[in-house]
Simulated assay, not measured.
Amino acid sequence: MDLVVLADEEGNSVSIRVLGQHPRWSAGLTAKIVIETPFVNGCIDLALSASKLEAWGHALDRLAAGEDIAWMEMSRGPSVFIQLTGERKCPEVVVEDESGSMVTVRIPIDLPEGWIEDHRERLGDLVASRKPIPSA
């Protein structure tokens, strides 16, 4: 299931694909952040906990209020930042892997109308399909 799909007609996208139960952590989910652009492609593994999913819901609320967000910034592993008006006057998604590869990728994405509500539904569908995941 794709928890996050931020994509435009130019071929730029950032997705978070939930792959299932984490094999070594019963309280978590295993996922990947996938970046695809005409210039650069990449992916990085990600572990999701109930608290990270809850934080994503709060981030969507802040985005709907017109605020930029930093998601998973204080945790181990990659961070995702969404700037509603980036350097190119359109939204930008920044994926940063400071603790691992030390690589940062900035992707301008012309997001379609209704993208925040779509992501609220994705989050709700994921939460509804799962057994309760203890906070970590």
Rank of each mutant, 00 (worst) to 15 (best):
V103H: 09
L123F: 01
E9L: 10
D8A: 03
G28P: 00
D118E: 13
G124A: 14
R122I: 04
V93F: 07
E54M: 05
L46Q: 11
M74I: 08
L19M: 13
R106L: 13
P134E: 10
D45W: 11
I82W: 09
G20Y: 04
V14P: 02
E121H: 06
A128S: 15
S79G: 08
D125R: 15
S15G: 11
S75Y: 10
I107P: 03
P91V: 10
H119G: 05
L84H: 08
S129M: 12
D125I: 08
T30N: 10
L19Y: 09
M74S: 15
V18G: 03
S99V: 08
M74W: 14
D125P: 01
E98Q: 04
G57Y: 05
Q21H: 12
V105D: 07
S79M: 14
V14M: 06
S13R: 03
G100E: 05
S79T: 10
F39R: 11
H22K: 04
R62C: 14
K32F: 13
D45V: 07
E54C: 05
M102P: 03
T30H: 04
I116G: 07
A27L: 07
V40E: 07
M102D: 14
Q21K: 12
E117K: 07
K131A: 06
V95P: 02
E36R: 13
D68I: 13
D68L: 14
R17K: 15
V105F: 06
L111H: 09
L19F: 00
A7I: 06
V40C: 08
V94I: 15
F39T: 11
M102N: 14
L6Q: 09
E10R: 11
E113I: 02
R76I: 06
R24I: 09
G28W: 00
M72A: 08
I109Q: 02
S99G: 03
L48E: 01
P38N: 02
E36A: 12
S51P: 02
E10T: 00
G77F: 04
L60C: 03
F81K: 15
I69L: 14
G28R: 04
E113P: 05
C43H: 15
E113M: 04
D2F: 10
P108V: 01
H119C: 00
E10H: 04
A55F: 05
S26L: 09
E36K: 13
C90V: 15
E87M: 14
G42A: 06
A64R: 10
W25R: 15
L29R: 02
L60Y: 00
M72Q: 09
A7R: 10
D2E: 13
M102G: 13
G100V: 02
R120I: 02
P134D: 11
E9K: 11
V18L: 09
I82V: 15
H58Q: 14
G11D: 05
G100S: 12
R76C: 06
G114C: 00
D8V: 02
E117T: 01
V34N: 12
S79I: 05
T30E: 11
P78K: 03
L19I: 11
L19P: 02
V105S: 05
L19H: 11
M102I: 05
W56P: 03
A31M: 03
A65Q: 13
F39C: 01
M1Q: 10
L19C: 06
V5P: 03
L29C: 04
W56G: 03
R76H: 10
S99W: 13
R62Q: 15
M102Y: 14
C90P: 03
R130D: 08
E113K: 06
